[in-house]
Design a protein around this nucleic acid. Structure first.
Lengths: 122, 122, 122, 122
DNA sequence: GTGGTCTAGACCACC
DNA sequence: GTGGTCTAGACCACA
């Protein structure tokens, strides 16, 4: 796990990563997260920071604590789907911002995407 | 200037940044780059590493050295445009990969982009 | 290996030597070059300088790196032949310059060469 | 004046240089050579070595000593011309050897020379 | 000052 | 071992 050098607070960056992992299914619904201690080591972060991450994710309804066992990804298709759409929206917005920065018109963007979608690796 | 923790060699990351800056126009054609020594300080890198960056960029035809004066961004619209398209392609490919990761279909992607393009920040 | 006292940068002189060796076949296509470290000792040069030589030759397409194994002369008859013609042209140009310096006319040059070619070492 | 690292004795290399200079006219007939002391400094060589050079060149008839004045290039067109031809022969032999090393046939050599002679810098 | 070359020595990834 | 990256510091040529 690489260091976090984003400007945003570390705990927020970790939260974003975990949300993204839930959205993509890298963390599947119902699966158990690493223990706070292990996750802290993995992310090279103080256990207190990791605990804050878990607490916040639980507060937002994405994970659930089971005392003496650990944290689990909530198994709620609606919620996962919402997360998915949220991630997709963020990515799309960032993409469009980049396209704007590079001076591409909406038509050019569409053409570019279509060319990539057609000429994939079939 | 933030540290480089990407896995890719530092010099390659700096090259990518500079190319991106040329593509967006943040580095305008004909403009002078910081001296090797200054840029090295700025990027917190050894002057030799920065020199390698410059050399490679010059070899690829994006900048030009003038001995005793400095490096300058080549003023060639065709080249700049090619770089712009290249950056756009890379961004689009990354975006589509992300969308695929999130399980969006091409139609969903298109819908998402259209909704963002219409309801921008008016 | 003798010292390099040419005015031209050492790395360029070594590159020229290796190209000449490839052109004459002293370095045969497909053969392995000495390791960077060994070649550095052989040429009495810093390994980094030797590495630069290898890198440049690879960039020009004359040799190819295999990580953990070594550098190999590219086996491409067309390229080798181009190099041969290039070396021949350089030698011929230098020869003609010398003849001009000595004040020989084209006819005298031709006569001289023919006399040497006929009365070789039979 | 660069160091002599040829394998051949230094005095012989200096003799060859001076002969070559006489042949090309860089040292014109009748002109005065630098004093032994000056020439020794110039060639970074012991004055005794330089004296040997002068003595040998005088013995071979290319220069002449005038006591208390210095050495002068002999003004003898026949001798100068012989030297010229000798230099030309040596250069031509070296050139043909190089061409042979590169595997060029006599016909190819001729073609190469003609192409260079025609397409000069008129 | 600028870019350009060279050395010395370190550490990494791959095989 | 191999190639590849990076640092530190020196010296040069040019302007």
């Amino acid at each position: 796990m690489l260091p976090y050098t984003d400007g945003a607070p570390i705990y927020a960056q970790i939260i974003a990563r975990i949300k993204a992992d839930i959205a993509t299914g890298a963390l599947s619904p119902g699966s158990r997260l690493p223990s706070v201690r292990d996750a802290a080591v993995e992310h090279r972060v103080n256990p207190n920071t990791m605990y804050r991450v878990m607490t916040e994710l639980e507060r937002e309804g994405f994970i659930q604590a089971e005392r003496g066992v650990g944290y689990f990804v909530v198994d709620d298709p609606a919620l996962t789907d919402a997360l998915r759409r949220d991630e997709a929206s963020k990515a799309a917005a960032a993409f469009l911002a980049r396209m704007d920065e590079l001076g591409l018109s909406p038509d050019e963007i569409e053409a570019l995407l279509h060319s990539l979608l057609k000429g994939g690796t079939p």
